[in-house]
Amino acid sequence: MATKFDRSGFDVGPEDIVRLQKIFDRICYENRLSRRDARASRLAKVLMDELRGGNLDEVSLMERGRWFCASAKLGAPGNQRPTL
């Protein structure tokens, strides 16, 4: 069963935005994503959701973003795993 977090009392401060921007830029660079790419928009949402869910650890946020990009590449046309 999925756990829902209560995000109503969590404010995202300027230092959090700076941290997320740094992580976002790094992951986009590593994956050669344009900031205007739809995948980059989804990455930004994933990172914001993680932060609002209580994940404040920079390393953990970076790994979550990398995992998202890796899984998005597997689902891209032409990159699916072969079925056996």
Rank of each mutant, 00 (worst) to 15 (best):
M1G: 12
M1A: 11
A2G: 00
A2W: 10
F5D: 00
F5T: 03
D6L: 00
R7Q: 02
R7E: 01
S8C: 09
S8D: 06
S8Q: 11
G9E: 03
G9Y: 07
D11E: 06
V12N: 14
P14A: 10
E15R: 12
D16W: 03
D16E: 01
I17C: 07
I17D: 09
V18Y: 05
R19S: 03
R19M: 06
L20A: 01
Q21C: 01
Q21F: 05
Q21I: 05
Q21R: 11
K22S: 04
K22T: 02
K22M: 01
F24G: 05
D25K: 15
D25L: 15
R26P: 00
R26V: 00
I27K: 12
I27Q: 11
I27D: 04
C28Y: 07
C28A: 11
Y29P: 11
Y29S: 07
Y29C: 04
Y29W: 10
N31I: 01
N31E: 07
R32K: 07
R32G: 06
R32P: 08
L33F: 13
R35L: 01
R36T: 00
D37V: 09
D37H: 07
A38H: 14
A38W: 14
R39P: 07
R39C: 09
A40R: 11
A40C: 13
S41K: 15
S41L: 10
S41V: 09
R42M: 05
L43Y: 14
L43W: 12
L43E: 08
A44S: 14
K45H: 13
V46C: 08
L47R: 04
L47Q: 08
M48Q: 07
M48Y: 09
D49L: 10
E50R: 15
E50G: 12
L51Q: 00
L51I: 02
R52T: 00
G53L: 01
G54R: 09
N55I: 03
L56D: 08
L56G: 09
L56P: 13
D57E: 06
D57Q: 08
E58I: 01
E58S: 05
E58N: 06
E58D: 06
V59C: 07
L61F: 10
L61H: 06
M62V: 10
R64G: 08
G65F: 12
G65C: 10
R66Y: 03
F68I: 08
A70C: 15
S71Y: 10
A72G: 08
L74A: 02
L74W: 08
L74S: 05
G75M: 13
A76K: 09
A76F: 10
P77T: 14
G78P: 07
N79E: 12
N79P: 15
N79Y: 13
N79I: 14
R81L: 12
R81I: 13
P82N: 06
P82H: 02
T83C: 14
